[in-house]
Design a protein around this nucleic acid. Structure first.
Lengths: 226, 226, 226, 226
DNA sequence: AATGAATGAGCCTTCATTCAT
DNA sequence: GATGAATGAAGGCTCATTCAT
């Protein structure tokens, strides 16, 4: 069970085997429930060797996060052709994202669930990657607006929220696609593009939504608080 | 620190104190890292009493999830006036949602992070609540389309994806608002309504997005896979 | 479940209910595995009342031992007609013994297993009862020998061992009869009487056993040691 | 106190040390009262090592039972010369039995008291060993009858009861000899052989016991019941 | 390069027992 | 006469981590 027990491998190879085992174990059992024993066995090595190479459980988990974060951003980057217009870039990026998360569910679980759930120093590790992605999306949104000949001076704060919402929706759809088998990466990407590009407005053309004037709705005691 | 150590309370009261302490501890430390010792101390009681009333760590956590899930759905329900049009209902619901999550960050952490991360039986507990919310949103979307005199026969599957994306965006914005202090519940709700209602299209009117024809884009090896 | 919860009983009655519950619980779960909680519930009272009346788990168990020991010796005594010859008295005593143990398996378990297994002060409590029974049997053996016109000056030590063996056999057969349903008290008594009265010798008339002369068997390295 | 704390022993050795400590502790404190802490300390190791090698308290106890049961049956087997007549074999077997139990009182306590008192899966473990011994005794009885030229077709059920009684008497005498110091294994064996071979009848030759006819003794209400 | 042997520390859980009413 | 509320103490078990080879 686990990797075949071949002896005397060069360090780099062994380390990857360990990280493979660790990502799989962390992804499936969770960070705390995963035991170093299980990881070592799955990697086909003894526990002291894991410590020799990766130092501690915390360091091992951090290494997993970094490797998976790099793999994910690399996959997205590789999936995007920069010479295309912004909307096409977004489409391709989402496709690459969903493809990667669905092919690598343990890694996705490590990044999206485990790392965020178990506090520092893991949370900020993955937050860095997420910030990178949000920045990329933000830039695409700005570029798209410019390409549409709109005023490029969109309020930063506004765009930040939109990018955040878009990325959050993508994360959620990744889980959804992974859980509900039958939804492909392509479908998930299309769903999100439709949502992102025209919103629900495409369901009711010409009826844009406008925030109610706070002054006029004071009658209801249940209007959005704070 | 912790609740004032008042002795001899009726059971119902003590139980709530324990749940308060548990939600706080689970929310901050995480399910596994939280120790029953810490929870008991924070509740101002001895550990055996926690076990006498709540049975086990698992049962205690489940009780937390149920209480917080009920509180969240109740808050949203109470924030929505059913007699209003669908878009207004959504606006109010989002406002109530963001208000509740920002006022109750530990409960939100329990529901959104901890319960989902630590497998059964917790995951399905919170999945039930989420399904309820997704259903509510789905129904609002359908109602909105009908109110806009559009064909109400929207493909189920399409709407399901949209609702999923919308809820995912909301969850993500809740975290964002909680983290980046300075964003109010109202602002978060407005950002999401804008995004949901008109998408990014409002940034570039008249240029709706359309999925590229797969046959024509075969040149790039990195187009959305699968 | 357990005794019907009738309130305000006189103390003596309540105590017996508690002892009933305790004997049953101790007999079935064992002394250590039995919890005061379970006993109190089975007795239909609250735990503090058990402590009020019986003081501690140790005292409660001791009370059980005493009650069951008295019941057992009383049953044997009541079963024996002193005016009969010794062999008939033994026969009746064994019958009464097996009848009692089979009708009262929890009590028998308390006496024969639990009390002996859990050290002082319980072991000596039940040892006292056992000594009484051994003494009774010893006296019967001596009487039987006298009635048979044999020299009544049997060596004490010899008779003591025989009585011990007889009582041990009886205890063992009581367990055997309780376990292997199908063996009645009467059958068990008959089996033991046969064994005790004529030994296995009745299977091979006229071939009494005689201890080998130690001097002559020195050749074997495995003769009874010490 | 306890084994000298020698470090870095091969597993097999350490395991035996642990079993030694466990038998001693279980035998003296009882299964439930014995703590893994105490056993580990007596064995001169840390608790986790006990768990690493023996898995759980239950497994540890089972291992003790098996080891002691094997040791006891091996001792008896080794003490018996099969080429001798049945009565001599019984004599030697009893001698070996009493010798072993007196030299190994903790093991005997584990087998005779602790294992039987604490339910499954322990009870059946020791029941298997006891059944083996009973079978051996049964076969000796049958052989003895055959050697005495008696009809070898003794009723099975009759012999079963006799063997049970004999083994029970032996068990009881083992306790007796262990408690009343001054009785040697040899003396205990002789006492039991006398009892078993000629019964009490040797005290009163020519007066065999016969079961009273049930029909004729109806006068007493206390005759052997059931 | 690699591992068998070993442990300090901590966690979940339970129990006998008592206080205040 | 009777009980709901509460706890100190301990026990089984597991884990991340290290030493000596």
């Amino acid at each position: 069970m686990g990797a075949v027990k071949t002896k005397r491998m060069p360090r780099a190879v062994r380390e990857q085997q360990m990280l493979d085992a660790a990502v799989r174990t962390f992804g499936q059992r969770g960070y705390m429930a995963a035991s170093m024993d299980e990881i070592a066995e799955l990697a086909g090595v003894s526990k002291p060797l894991v410590y020799l190479y990766l130092n501690s459980k915390e360091d091992l988990f951090t290494a997993c996060i970094r490797r998976e974060a790099d793999a994910l951003t690399a996959a997205v980057r590789a999936g995007v052709r920069r010479e295309l217009p912004a909307d096409r870039q977004l489409w391709e990026g989402l496709g690459a994202f969903f493809a990667h998360t669905s092919q690598n569910p343990d890694g996705w679980s490590v990044l999206h669930l485990q790392a965020r759930t178990h506090g520092e120093p893991f949370a900020s590790e993955v937050a860095a990657m997420r910030a990178e992605i949000v920045a990329f999306v933000t830039q695409l949104i700005v570029a798209a607006a410019r390409e549409a000949h709109r005023d490029p001076d969109l309020p930063e704060s506004e765009v930040a929220g939109l990018a955040e919402a878009l990325v959050g929706a993508a994360e959620s759809l990744a889980d959804w696609a992974n859980a509900a088998s039958g939804v492909t990466a392509r479908q998930a990407a299309a769903t999100l593009m439709n949502f992102a590009w025209s919103g629900l407005g495409n369901l009711m053309d010409g009826k844009p939504w406008t925030a109610p004037d706070a002054a006029h709705e004071a009658s209801g005691q249940t209007s959005p608080a704070r």
